[in-house]
Design a protein around this nucleic acid. Structure first.
Lengths: 223, 223
DNA sequence: TAGATTGTTAATCGATTAACAATC
DNA sequence: TAGATTGTTAATCGATTAACAATC
């Protein structure tokens, strides 16, 4: 198989492979085998080959994968050929940390705008960006290509999501611990920090080994 | 079936059900049907019943589930009967936001200690906690019941993980964008903020509707 | 009893993995 | 040619979901 629909599980691992490839490129490695890539990404070698086969045939039998070529291919597939603007709504502790997160820029994302509803915060600057009033976020705002990040209290999260969608946003990362609903064509992912701790709490108090890793598709130590 | 091994996918949804049950309890609801719970948790009703059946038979046919009873059951199963200490290593933007995250305390987690390697930071206070030297984190530190949070740069993450494990930590939440390995008996979960944006970038640039939600087990809008 | 809703079964779907033919 | 490694097949496993008998 080659360029058909890429499974969700595979999409979730492509950024991990990309990270590993960037490291390999920086140390001057020209090629990498599925076995090496698997070791570095913390997954099974068969899984790596299966995942990459969904993108096409970019390896060479007997040799491996060209690091630079594969890096470019995965980048394009993920839509990282050009930098993407990120709009952050809610500038509490987490929102401010995200606004200044170095990793975003390193991975091709640029903080383009900040919004909050607190009149005390609106107009002030955070890391060089003036905080705008959430009331100004709506159909008139052109944000078609941006990714929206919700870092508000849960009670207003749905309202914020609606505003982002009205502004044309088609991808939302929600940190508010609540279920929000968006139209089918909008991509949504949720990150709930307390939920992560609660899941860990479950595996920690069990006697058996913590298969929390399995849930994330991460392999156990093979050293 | 009743009290056998709980599937990983189910464990990942229990905190969501718990959150919904807490809301229902606060509005005075005494019982809830799988249909209602499903709607509020953003999942399928059959999935709710299947998930809850792994805990035991806590519902009443024709009636539904007792909100308070179910809340208590899920809490105990997740090991949330008592508060758990959290140790945060790395106090950059993200680490500090986590140290002051109100949601942690609300969900039964207490920040117990902070560690960093920066001599400028060691000894200073962050939200009432003195930052300790990471060099002092090791076998002598008794952290058996704590959950370790890694919010350091990726290069030192493995070293930090090893120190946490040596100190007795059996559950780790890793925010550093790198693969770390831990002994089989230690539960590990990874949260990579840039990775989330990269996944969203993939679904955003596709023409078809964003099934990023599917990947998280979250349902589409049914309004 | 009639209506409602659980708990479980079974079908289906997607993800993982070992194995190996293809081929560099 | 011999050795290495991909790409694919097929078996297996786990998760999802509809359907419905059990039962309040």
């Amino acid at each position: 198989m080659s360029t058909r629909r890429i499974p969700d599980a595979t999409v979730g691992r492509l950024p991990v492979y990309l990270r590993v490839l960037l490291e390999l490129a920086s140390t001057g490695e020209a090629t990498v085998s599925s076995e090496q890539l698997a070791e570095l990404a913390g997954v099974n070698a068969a899984k790596v080959r299966k995942d990459l086969s969904h993108l096409g045939s970019y390896g060479t039998r007997g040799v491996g994968y060209d690091v630079e070529y594969l890096r470019f291919e995965i980048s394009s597939r993920l839509g990282l050929a050009h930098e993407s603007p990120v709009v952050i709504v809610g500038l509490g502790n987490l929102g401010r940390a995200l606004a200044n997160h170095a990793g975003f820029r390193e991975r091709g994302f640029i903080v383009a705008a900040l919004y909050d509803s607190d009149v005390e915060k609106v107009g002030t600057e955070v890391y060089g960006h003036v905080i705008r009033d959430i009331a100004d976020l709506g159909p008139a705002t052109q944000l078609d290509i941006a990714i929206g990040v919700i870092a508000t209290p849960p009670v207003v999260a749905q309202n914020v999501a609606d505003r982002l969608v009205a502004a044309g946003v088609r991808a939302i990362l929600n940190f508010a611990p609540t279920v929000i609903s968006v139209p089918e064509e909008v991509a949504l992912r949720n990150v709930d920090l307390s939920l992560e701790l609660q899941i860990l709490s479950f595996y920690q108090q069990r006697e058996e080994p913590g298969s929390a890793e399995v849930a994330l598709g991460v392999e156990h130590d093979r050293r």
